[in-house]
């Protein structure tokens, strides 16, 4: 464990609490892509199958359980509790375009051709692009509540912090995980446009609005 990774994980945790807070306080999931949230459930379920056979640490175990449970809970809130506040006509990204290629990539690029490894690689690729439906929705509506942008920023920061973590690990432990690194860089890259607007507008106290 190093500081970058710890802060990254904390940013990830923060993003989930921000999202829960947004849904609970506004009693609405307006502006949140159900598809992206559903993809995260799939990401966690396929990545953490090793919960059953690979013990890492208590920290790792608790976090995995939390990510699975909280993502399922968010899906429940969106699907049942606050269903009327979700507008499927804005959430129109076709996730088949993400699932198919990620699955094919996982079949080709994995560390070992066995079920758990292919699922793991699939989860890495899918996580990298799971934010697409959300960003697409943002693009369509052209604006977002501040709290929704804080959620996205925390999620982006989480991924961005994993990059110095990998650099640090390369120099201190000599380990590189090329699949995670390449996917992680792609994933972070997807947030660049968002970050630009977030830092130049939201953090200056302005409304998050995309240029027309």
């Amino acid at each position: 464990m190093n500081l970058f990774r710890l802060l990254g994980d904390l940013a990830h945790l923060a993003s989930i609490f921000i999202l829960l807070h947004k849904i609970q306080t506004t009693r609405s999931c307006r502006g949140i892509s159900f598809k992206t949230q559903a993809l995260y459930v799939l990401v966690f379920l396929t990545r953490y199958v090793d919960l059953f056979f690979h013990w890492v640490s208590l920290y790792n175990f608790v976090m995995k359980i939390f990510f699975i449970a909280s993502s399922c809970y968010i899906l429940y809130l969106m699907k049942y509790r606050f269903r009327p506040t979700h507008d499927p006509s804005l959430d129109t990204f076709k996730i088949e375009y993400l699932l198919g290629p990620c699955f094919v990539l996982a079949l080709i690029f994995n560390y070992h051709f066995e079920l758990a490894e292919v699922l793991w690689a699939f989860s890495i690729y899918l996580e990298a692009v799971a934010i697409f439906p959300q960003l697409f929705m943002l693009q369509r509506t052209g604006e977002a509540e501040a709290i929704t942008t804080h959620y996205l920023a925390a999620l982006g920061v989480y991924r961005a912090l994993y990059i110095p973590n990998w650099i640090y690990r390369y120099f201190t432990e000599g380990v590189v995980d090329p699949i995670a690194v390449v996917a992680g860089i792609v994933q972070t890259g997807l947030y660049l446009d968002f970050f630009y607007v977030y830092f130049t507008k939201v953090l200056q106290g302005q409304k998050f609005e995309l240029p027309a």
Binding site: R5, S57, Y162
Partner: peptide, 10 residues
Amino acid sequence: PSELPVKDEL
């Protein structure tokens, strides 16, 4: 030698 990366990250 193809050693699998240790999967200790989340």
